[in-house]
Write a protein that binds this DNA or RNA. Structure first.
Length: 360
DNA sequence: TCCGTGACGGTTGAA
DNA sequence: GGTTCAACCGTCACG
């Protein structure tokens, strides 16, 4: 539910808390920056907090897109039925297999790549929740074969295989780790190797739950890498407005055709003041239904540009040059893009455009 | 004065 | 259908 009224920031600008600025404003911020306008001036002119200006410029420099990130939703699932099927297969073939081994196999077999391979904890969770019956069955079988094994202890099926030493089974060693006795080969998932239960090789169910936390999250850089692969379609941002953005624009009572109007007064030699909002509602304030005066004389615009495709302009030319357009419609259908950490801090040149800071 | 950044309160949408 | 959770947002204050 969109609020009927927005809030007013310290600069007198109207914003809707929690909602991104309209694309028109975002575009103007980038445009002004490329014209050499200092961020502080942009902030004052557009009545947008300097932190926001900084953020938008940083994002633009990082992703080449002025568009906000995908709000809400969840990350794409990596534990697809195919992956689960393969995990089940691995487990069936080798009941004693470790989760990290399964992970490696998924990679080696090409079931997953490094971007969508489930985490070890995810695999553990799959083993526990989805393949638990299988393992428990194996556990039962092993008990039949080893009637002397203690049955009262709450072994988890994952750790229920017989002692590797006694059975002559392999003792998996994680990469980079020295071979160590079997009971010490597991502490990666055992918080303390000094507890009585650890020393005895007994692990409570609660401990196992702990290290199979459902709150695992893929590394941010992996998501970044993923998102980079999606910066292929320039068309989306050339049109400037993707589905989500369009929706957003609609919410702000903006139309796609409003973009040129906003961009129009960027080119004015004397920067036309941002239309003072008499904000009955923030949507009015954000409205790009600017006076016609703003529409005319936008010298920055490429002659071939159309009102509905206003990005035949410097901004998008540079965007296209960078080849980093976000196809957020595709992103959102496949990925939840995360581009928070900027590997290359941007730098607004005093008389030029945005430039990358030289690597330290 | 400028600007990067973290905290904060808010929204969103998938699970 | 309601709740949870983790993503996002812009503002503000601080250094």
């Amino acid at each position: 539910m969109e609020p009927a009224f927005g809030e007013v920031n310290q600069l007198g600008g109207v914003f809707v808390n929690g909602r991104p600025l309209p694309n028109a404003i975002r575009l103007r911020i980038v445009e002004l920056a490329q014209l050499g306008i200092r961020p502080c001036d942009i902030s004052r002119q557009l009545r947008v907090s300097h932190g926001c200006v900084s953020k938008i410029l940083a994002r633009y420099n990082e992703t080449g897109s002025i568009l906000p990130g995908a709000i809400g939703g969840s990350k794409p699932r990596v534990t697809t039925p195919t992956v689960v099927k393969h995990i089940r297969t691995y487990k069936q073939r080798d009941p004693g297999i470790f989760a990290w081994e399964i992970r490696d196999r998924l990679l080696a077999d090409g079931v997953c790549d490094k971007y969508n391979v489930p985490s070890v904890s995810s695999i553990s969770r799959i083993l526990r929740n989805k393949i638990g019956n299988l393992a428990q069955q194996n556990h039962y079988e092993s008990h039949k074969q080893h009637p002397a094994a203690p049955s009262a202890l709450p072994y988890n099926h994952l750790y229920s295989y017989p002692s590797p030493i006694a059975a002559g089974a392999k003792v998996p060693t994680p990469p980079g780790m020295h071979s160590i006795p079997c009971t010490m080969a597991m502490p990666r998932t055992w918080p303390s190797s000094h507890s009585v239960t650890d020393i005895l090789g007994i692990r409570s169910i609660t401990d196992q739950v702990t290290d199979t936390s459902p709150y695992h999250s893929p590394k941010v850089e992996e998501w970044n890498s993923l998102s980079r692969n999606t910066f292929q379609s320039a068309q989306h941002v050339l049109n400037g407005l993707e589905k989500n953005s369009l929706d957003q624009e609609v919410k702000y009572s903006q139309s796609a055709s409003g973009l040129p109007a906003v961009s129009g007064f960027v080119a004015a030699s004397g920067m036309t003041p941002y239309p003072t909002a008499a904000p009955v509602s923030p949507y009015m304030a954000y409205s790009t239904a600017a006076p016609t005066g703003y529409v005319t004389g936008h010298g920055w615009q490429h002659t071939g540009g159309s009102p509905l495709s206003p990005h035949n302009c410097d901004i998008t030319a540079s965007l296209a040059f960078k080849g980093m357009h976000t196809a957020r419609e595709a992103e959102e259908s496949k990925l939840s893009i995360q581009t928070r950490k900027s590997p290359q801090p941007y730098h607004i040149q005093r008389h030029g455009t945005i430039a990358h800071m030289p690597s330290a």
